[in-house]
Write a protein that binds this DNA or RNA. Structure first.
Length: 247
DNA sequence: AACCAGGACGTGA
DNA sequence: TCACGTCATGGT
């Protein structure tokens, strides 16, 4: 299945195949940005995501949910994060101000399903402070490389925000052109025979960005959103195939 | 019943 | 830089 394909051409071929076979994904899967009906508590996810829609959230609520989800999903499956996002909303802890004001126990209980809940509660508070200071301006900023680098270094200085969390927030909440490297990315690249899968986060990210910065994709950020989503979907299919064969 | 899940941080070579 | 221990719940 996996042939030697360590050069950029092979990478572009791989993603072109994902595009054809998997189609538009429409990440990040925001739940509460736009309730199904006004005032409803029905998660947006129940209506399906939004394939083909690569816009970043227009409201702070959606951007905060992405930032929250990016922290909660650290070394944790997304299904658990969805529970926590719903619990945060039910407990009225679904805004940065409310997270900062909430008692520890309320926060702990809401995010318990995502694991590491003591650490992550502190992370969310640190991120809330950053968000209150920077979100409005950043959401209106031109998506230039300078803005990206400034925001990225600011985010990396926030406690609990490492490279993957930062890039997820920048790419999906603010549509800034950075590539998200995660466990799915490495698994799929390794399976396809790319030795780059073993490189450090920084090297792998720059390699992916260089190889996938194609002029025909005018909205680079939108394309990279899709690339990351394809890696996720491809990895999930790999896992299904493995489980099927193993048991 | 061990193993894993969309990491980040502190520490010591 | 890099390897390693720690943080913790829930699904398989």
């Amino acid at each position: 299945m996996s042939q030697p394909a360590s050069h950029g051409h092979g990478l572009r071929t791989l993603l072109a195949r994902f595009e054809q076979e998997l189609g538009p994904q429409g990440w990040w899967p925001v739940r509460w940005e736009r309730p199904a009906t006004p005032g409803s508590l029905e998660p947006r996810a129940l209506l399906g995501y939004h394939p083909g829609d690569f816009s970043s959230p227009k409201r702070a609520r959606g951007r905060w949910e992405i930032a929250t989800g990016a922290v909660l999903t650290q070394n944790t499956s997304w299904a658990q994060v969805e529970r926590s996002l719903d619990a945060l909303r039910a407990a009225a802890c679904d805004s940065p101000t409310r997270v900062l004001a909430a008692p520890d126990e309320a926060l702990f209980q809401a995010i318990r399903s995502s694991g590491y809940y003591r650490q992550k509660a502190g992370y969310l508070r640190a991120l809330a402070t950053w968000f209150l200071a920077e979100d409005r301006q950043l959401s209106r900023a031109e998506p230039t490389v300078v803005i990206l680098q400034q925001a990225r270094s600011q985010l990396l200085a926030v406690r609990g925000v490492g490279p993957e969390t930062a890039d997820s927030i920048l790419l999906y909440a603010y549509k800034l052109p950075t590539f998200v490297v995660d466990a799915y990315t490495r698994r799929v690249l390794a399976d396809a025979g790319f030795p780059q899968s073993l490189e450090s986060y920084a090297k792998l990210r720059l390699w992916l960005q260089q190889e996938l910065a194609q002029p025909e994709h005018a909205g680079t950020a939108a394309y990279w959103q899709e690339c990351h989503a394809w890696f996720v979907e491809a990895a999930k299919r790999l896992r299904k195939a493995r489980n099927k064969g193993a048991t």
